[in-house]
Write a protein that binds this DNA or RNA. Structure first.
Length: 842
RNA sequence: GGGCGCGUAGCUCAGGGGUAGAGCACUCGGCUUACAACCGAGCGGUCGGCGGUUCGAAACCGUCCGCGCCCACCA
């Protein structure tokens, strides 16, 4: 047994106010949620918590989904599992980079040496950002996010997350960088990471490559231009939305079965304006019903161009530079005139100029036709992506290897999804991959790619012989650290070395949260106890990124899933049914809610959002939660206030046994629901029982419980037993109020108490006894209501008829209904009560 | 274009072959020795449409409509 009940010490006026401060402090002091790392692996329930981005702010959506995880953590803990529930802060990535830049007025320049005495300017000048080394930049990041992290931690504690705050990590911290680099080096050693120069989706604002997982489509207005190409016999008209790519055109393509163009296949045409001779080719991806059915292939307008270019073995005439402007010099074979007029122009201005030129030369057929079509964007960017050929690092993720893809699909099938239909999103994504995972980013802040390249005699990097550091020196920064066999003065010199300038994609680090939090290779004893984890909770919108990439890393490194189960939470919608987000300005700040209604109330609303289901933000539900919490205080005070329960008190009365039998069913339901990750159903069942317990059972037994003798002892014992069970059933959702009440009469924390079992309740009760008696009481109340009388009004005479009257707890009904004369009549019918009210007393 | 989910009371949602449910809102009544931040009672629905299976369909099957999300090689 967890503890022995003692004489209750109940406040005269119980209140929710101050419970958060009180219990947050106590839980911390008592180490209530401390992970006991001596417990065997079989007892451990480990959770791979999503690290929130600290440069943003927490909103109700966070409270919502983290509460779900916390409720499940608390359930598992009460079931006797040792819960490994760490927290992380995501401070690696663009949002943090921008925030550090703006806050301190600096920018990261990895070519600079580390300055240990650096202090940021007193008054940052946003126009003139001071360049600092990567190490200095990371230090500033840690300094700034330290402040945010304090606020976040305080907030999570107030929400009541049962996190073990001793297990805290940050995604830009040294452990994370080391783990991220180690995993990369292992990928490299096994041939899963590779360097490749290839056309890449490119964001011209951030000037970095981006991965397939970071794309999103946005509807953009544009126009179709019908352009004339010059053939020997006849002109060929194509339609394009990107006439500015004309100098990059390398071929025309139509479908092999397209009769209109069949005779042209194998011939050449000349581009307008530039007169470059290009072939007309056939390819199955050309769609006869799009535009004129024949397309120009440019290097590169979109990803289909890349496919055509690769499969048809076409030359490269790239014209768009890293900054999104047209290159200063035309590609080989393209005449300087009129290209000179386009050099250095943005895509937008180049398009305008090309259209003018086409108009002048007569090669523009008709007027442009306005259209709206989806265009690919980097999810954080605001200009359409271009395709630029660059050298990048990739990790195999099944995008090109059918075997790996099949293995990863099997992993998806092996994983238990809650709710199950979310698996389809994973499969959809894996099946739709069209390339490996591009992990290098041409950014300055982040985890550096841990390789150097030797320089040959002429000072050119030898990319196919990267130099890697030994694992025990990680993390390294190749821009300031030198490779083992070299000295720093050989940097950039012929026969010397150069560091890879790039950093890794943030997902390349956050895909390792189980390894980072679990002490992979840093604390093997811990890691062996927690990995693979039991649960990955996360939002359904990042299945393709976070979930998938974590599965990839664990599969490649450990040959297993990173966790056995994943629980996907939905989003919070504002009352207009839109996703709440900061950019829409419809965010409700959680701290105000927590202060106004109390944490348990907000948690109650959160727990009403079923797994995977988007939920409407609703203060009404929060108020209901607050009412419930207050009711728990008051009902508990009442239950504990009936006087002592004799040591040998036994629950003997049929009504009491009935109530406990019904409760036993609730325990079974709630347990099953929690086991299936359905915290909502568990709470719902418990709550429904609780209100009936208050409205019917308590009313029926209170007068008996005030009395003396075995009947009174039966009621008191039953009440306390029920209270002990109910508090534990509510504890995962409402940790504060349940802990408060528990402390009135029990030792230890309710959150370390054993989850209730049906077996601890007396058997043999007949739930119908309570149901029938409560129904009779309801009918008595109805009669009083109809007579507009007080519930205290005396009933002079009542007749109860029905098939089940034998089960009626007559004495309790008489007392609760204030019935002077009760008559029972068995009849083959539903229960009916005939009530005669006594004349109102003077 | 493909996939997934959702349409039940004014609102937020549960239910999932056997007499339509809860909370909120609304109406009426009640200070009742746990709670007026409370209690009691009531009003309120062709369960998105149409077909089918069945003795019986809100539920199962088909189809259509609407909403949302995910994905897609969108010249």
């Amino acid at each position: 047994m967890t503890d022995q009940p003692r004489t209750p010490d109940v406040p005269a006026k119980p209140s929710l106010d101050g419970l958060e401060e009180k219990w947050v402090r106590r839980w911390d002091a008592d180490g209530t949620y401390r992970f006991d790392r001596t417990r065997p692996r079989a007892d451990v329930y480990s959770i791979d918590t999503p690290p929130p981005t600290v440069s943003g702010s927490l909103h109700v959506g966070h409270v919502f989904s983290y509460t779900h995880t916390d409720a499940m953590a608390r359930f598992q803990r009460m079931r006797g599992r040792e819960v490994f529930y760490p927290m992380g802060w995501d401070d690696n990535g663009l949002p943090t980079e921008r925030r550090v830049q703006n806050y301190f007025g600096v920018r990261c320049d990895p070519s600079l040496p580390y300055d240990p005495s650096f202090e940021p300017p007193e008054k940052p000048d946003p126009k003139r950002q001071l360049p600092v080394s990567r190490r200095n930049f990371i230090e500033l990041c840690e300094r700034l996010t330290g402040v945010d992290e304090k606020a976040f931690e305080e907030m999570w504690r107030r929400v009541g997350l049962s996190v073990d705050w001793n297990h805290l990590y940050t995604t830009i911290g040294s452990d994370s960088r080391a783990a991220s680099q180690r995993a990369f080096l292992r990928n490299l050693k096994r041939g899963e990471a590779y360097l490749s120069e290839a056309p890449t989706l490119w964001d011209v604002t951030f000037r970095t490559a981006v991965a397939q997982a970071e794309l999103e489509d946005r509807e953009q207005s544009g126009a179709f231009f019908r352009i004339r190409f010059h053939g020997d016999d006849r002109p060929v008209y194509i339609e394009t939305t990107r006439p500015e790519l004309l100098p990059a055109c390398v071929a025309l393509v139509a479908h092999p079965d397209d009769e209109r163009y069949r005779e042209l296949f194998g011939t050449t045409v000349r581009t307008p304006l530039f007169g470059v001779e290009i072939p007309v080719l056939a390819h199955r991806l050309a769609e006869p019903d799009k535009g004129s059915g024949i397309a120009m292939i440019c290097t590169f307008g979109d990803v289909t161009d890349v496919t055509w270019w690769r499969e048809l073995d076409l030359p490269t005439r790239a014209i768009i530079d890293w900054d999104g402007r047209l290159a200063a010099v035309p590609p080989q074979g393209v005449p300087a005139s009129p290209y000179d007029e386009l050099a250095g122009k943005t895509v937008f201005s180049a398009k305008e100029r090309v259209v003018e030129l086409l108009r002048e030369s007569g090669d523009l057929d008709g007027e442009p036709r306005k259209i709206s079509r989806p265009v690919k964007f980097y999810e954080k960017g605001n200009k359409p992506l271009e395709i630029v050929t660059t050298r990048q690092w990739y990790i195999r993720n099944g995008g090109r290897d059918p075997e790996i893809r099949a293995e990863l699909l099997l992993r998806g099938a092996e994983l238990d999804w809650h709710p199950p239909y979310m698996r389809a999103r994973y499969e959809n994504w894996v099946e739709g991959l069209n390339g490996d995972w591009l992990i290098s980013r041409q950014r300055f802040f982040g985890v550096p790619i841990p390789v150097w390249y030797p320089l040959d005699a002429s000072g050119e990097p030898v990319y196919d012989q990267p130099i890697t550091p030994p694992e025990d020196v990680l993390p390294v920064d190749p821009s300031s650290d030198h490779p083992p066999a070299y000295s720093e003065d050989q940097r950039g010199k012929p026969n010397g070395f150069t560091g890879d300038p790039d950093v890794m994609d943030t997902w390349a680090t956050s895909s390792l949260t189980p390894q980072i939090a679990g002490g992979w290779e840093r604390d093997p004893d811990l890691f062996a106890r927690v990995f693979p984890y039991a649960l990955r909770p996360q939002g359904h919108d990042i299945i393709r990124t976070w979930l998938f990439s974590t599965v990839v890393r664990a599969h490649l490194e450990h040959g297993s899933l990173p966790w056995s189960d994943t629980a996907l939470s939905g989003w919070i919608l504002d009352p207009d049914r839109k996703k709440m987000s900061k950019s829409k300005g419809n965010v409700v700040t959680p701290i105000a809610l927590l202060e106004e209604f109390g944490s348990d109330a907000v948690r109650y609303w959160s727990a009403s959002g079923r797994p995977g289901t988007d939920t409407t933000f609703d203060t009404g539900q929060i108020k209901v939660g607050r009412r419930l919490a207050i009711k728990i205080l008051n009902a508990s005070k009442f239950v504990l206030g009936f006087g002592e329960v004799a040591a040998d008190a036994a629950v003997t009365e049929p009504l009491d046994l009935a109530m406990l039998a019904a409760l036993s069913g609730v325990v079974e339901d709630a347990t099953r629901a929690f086991e299936g990750y359905d915290y909502t159903r568990a709470l719902e069942r418990t709550e429904r029982f609780f209100w009936e317990f208050c409205d019917d059972y308590l009313e029926l037994v209170k007068s008996r419980a005030y009395g003396e003798g075995p009947e009174a002892q039966s009621a008191r014992a039953a009440l306390r037993t029920a209270l002990g069970v109910l508090l534990r059933l509510f504890a995962p959702a409402l940790p504060f109020v349940t802990e408060e009440v528990w402390s009135w009469w029990r030792e230890g924390s309710v959150h370390r108490a054993a989850w209730p079992a049906a077996a601890e309740l007396p058997s043999g009760g007949e739930p119908a006894v309570l149901a029938v008696t409560a129904e009779a009481l309801r009918q008595v109340r109805k009669a009083k209501s109809a007579a507009k009388a007080s519930m205290r009004a005396d009933v002079s005479h009542a007749v109860v008829r029905g098939a089940e009257v034998a089960r009626l707890a007559q004495d309790d009904l008489v007392a609760a209904g204030r019935i002077a004369d009760l008559v029972i009549e068995a009849a083959p019918a539903e229960l009916a009560v005939e009530v005669t009210l006594a004349p109102a007393a003077g």
